[in-house]
Design a protein around this nucleic acid. Structure first.
Lengths: 202, 202
DNA sequence: TGTACATCAGTGAACGCGCGTTCACTGATGTAC
DNA sequence: TGTACATCAGTGAACGCGCGTTCACTGATGTAC
């Protein structure tokens, strides 16, 4: 303990994998995902440039772990919101899910970008597909609950699910890609609620 | 003419800018936009690696021209479809727009990806923003026409516009990101129609 | 029709750079006895 | 409590590579007279 406090740079980091993931988020936020390099990530975490390979193997390994972390947080966020909205109507509950979906994409821009790019990370790795599946099911349950309550029963459940997903996913990308500037300053979560009301007026 | 036919490799290309844009699409389709390099594009077009600089300046210049070409084709496609569907109901016309939107994203994957990425090209360059505006207005007119016919009048026009745009844009990305595989083999344009019917049952 | 000349398009060699990956190493930690 | 040893984490030098950009150049074209 004394030794650790005395030395500014302990040889062992403590939790380097976590620090590298945080550095990855920082680097992507700053320079964009296209410019991401392992050396820059290591630099930001204050370790030698060979250190990341020790934990993640190679660049794709790092990005797969990064996407996995993102999907874990994302699924947790959706499940939490669905749990908290257990008492309200199914439409209000789906509204909350939509707000959370878009809210996550804005507050975790770097993660969100990598999460959906199959060219950057390994989507078939279970560390990614498992939490991705959880997130999907959270949305799906939201849609099914609405249909159980008689909302949007004019279309097959599958169509409603794809429509609802497209709606929140599309809004997320339009916001991230700065395409809604023409509508002035708008809060993305409020927007999610407004467009959800168009899809599910019930 | 004889000379041109006799020599396999004429010194002057004929339309190198166009050939370089086509090579860009090919390279992105094959390797992903993250791996795009000017040298590879030149190689594919069969010219020296210094040639692209002559026409586009630098890499961002090439991608800006590429996005501009994409938006021109995109706007043309939407306007053509809207014109052809002048006789049908506004809901059917918007359906056609949605099919065209998603159809374009699938048949011009490389262009679509670059078009929406502000980190790769200059969105404020008028060669991009002009056709992008045309595409936007084509969608907007489609939405306004529906409201004029009494469809989706429960929400403000702006909300309906953002919802409709999010819907088709989101579906496009979900398809490109291979996220709808879980629903089996589906035709993207048919999907567009199905989810449009959820949003505008009228 | 022919000649001179300006302009444009594409070349190819050269540059310096940051990258990912490898590898033998050393420092630190934890466990067995 | 102390010692020996195995294991793990991070180092730093080295490698070869493809990249974007520059620059003096040459080949081709088109226009003026």
């Amino acid at each position: 303990m004394m030794a650790l406090m005395a030395s500014e740079q302990p040889y062992h980091h403590g939790d380097l994998p976590e620090a590298l993931l945080a550095a990855t988020a920082e680097a992507i936020d700053e320079l964009g995902v296209a410019a991401l390099s392992l050396r820059d990530v290591a630099r930001r975490a204050g370790v030698s440039h060979a250190a990341p390979a020790h934990h993640f193997g190679d660049k794709q390994g790092l990005l797969t772990a990064f996407a996995a972390q993102g999907f874990e947080w994302f699924a947790d966020a959706l499940e939490t919101v669905a749990g908290e909205a257990a008492g309200v109507s199914s439409v209000e509950r789906f509204n909350a899910l939509g707000r959370a979906y878009v809210g996550f994409s804005v507050s975790h821009k770097a993660h969100f970008e990598v999460m959906w790019r199959p060219d950057l990370c390994d989507h078939y790795d279970v560390v990614v597909s498992e939490p991705a599946g959880r997130a999907f099911r959270a949305l799906q349950h939201g849609v099914e609950a609405m249909q159980d309550e008689g909302v949007a029963t004019g279309s097959p459940t599958e169509d409603v699910m794809i429509a609802a997903w497209s709606l929140v996913h599309g809004l997320s990308w339009l916001v991230l890609q700065q395409r809604l500037e023409i509508f002035g300053e708008v809060d993305p979560e409020d927007l999610a609620e407004r467009i959800n009301r168009v899809l599910f007026p019930g």
